[in-house]
Design a protein around this nucleic acid. Sequence first.
DNA 1: CCTACCGATCGGTAGG
DNA 2: CCTACCGATCGGTAGG
Lengths: 209, 209
Amino acid sequence: MESIGTAAPPAAGEGGNRSREDVVRAASRLFARRGYHGTSMRDLGEELGMLGSSIYSHVSGKNELLIEIVGRGAALFDSVTAEAAASRDSAVERLRQMVHGHVNVVVGNIDEARTFLFESRFLPETDRRQIVAMRDEYEQAYRETIRAGIDEGSLASDLDPGMTAIFILSVLNALIRWYRPTGERTAGAIASEMWAFVSHGILAERVNG
Amino acid sequence: MESIGTAAPPAAGEGGNRSREDVVRAASRLFARRGYHGTSMRDLGEELGMLGSSIYSHVSGKNELLIEIVGRGAALFDSVTAEAAASRDSAVERLRQMVHGHVNVVVGNIDEARTFLFESRFLPETDRRQIVAMRDEYEQAYRETIRAGIDEGSLASDLDPGMTAIFILSVLNALIRWYRPTGERTAGAIASEMWAFVSHGILAERVNG
DNA sequence: CCTACCGATCGGTAGG
DNA sequence: CCTACCGATCGGTAGG
């Protein structure tokens, strides 16, 4: 399991000059909270203790910030499926690891994850298409692992891999809506509960074999 | 089961004067596609074949449109849990009906549902709080039905009603992300597949009793 | 990173 | 529903 999360923010008080990284991080925070179109360069400047126009000494424009943040989010999620694909565990175990990895990414990088999921549609067309393609690959990794699980006999033979992948990712992606860092559950606990739900369902006993 | 969906749009061509209802419907479409902050009154006017300033003869402002659309979405979802609560069926059957009802609302009112789910955060503070409260009640209806299902013995006794409610709603709400009217599945087929996933999970056989 | 701006666009109004 | 317009704010630039 790779390390997740970002270093603590560098004393976001008054004065002091900010790095490009500070700018990107502040933009993640604001885009996640107010949306891309709901955040102005002046808002961002205020968050950083500088004028909106000063941000242009760090980045070429607002677009660049969105592109970079969404790209980071995509890379984080990508690394989860890449790691699982490299494993020699059973398909069902790989799927369980993917669930845990996804939860870890969200919990450790809420702002990037939220911007990735909610603001990608505002990317310039070329970048948007790239992200859509990445997202399709991510979903495909789930589809393939589910198919492998059916083949190895650990997953129910009547599953539709495409729909099942969507449903599992639905549970995973929604975490971004309800997760609060102040909550009592650890990432591991959340992932375990999700996996229990996904694997057993909610009925007291199975209706069919 | 109540009737869902809205009447066909009234010949959205050139000329002709539009009703307030036309304005609200066009706003639903644009807010759903471009977001609230990504839609200008001039964009909306263009969609309606009039100037942005002319819209103010139908509504008091952009805010009013968002409030109305989100309110409609909330009312639609509310009616689903209200109907289920009034039923004398078993808890597990009521839960199944709630899943079907939710899918019907989304499929029949995509734009309102999408605006409700993605743009509520841009409401004026007072309205936003009302919607958050409504959403809490909706979630609570799921929690209570799940608890009743555990009590009647149809749902697994080790379920956490709060988490389970969130997980089920995650699958339901995500529909708004992947549903396309051009897809081959009917609302009923989608709801059935969701219910199968939620009730049985994905494993070939249960691990515990 | 600031001063001093730019043209464009924003939500909205007065008056018809 | 249009004409004509308002002040505010937008993303961004020149020059230091």
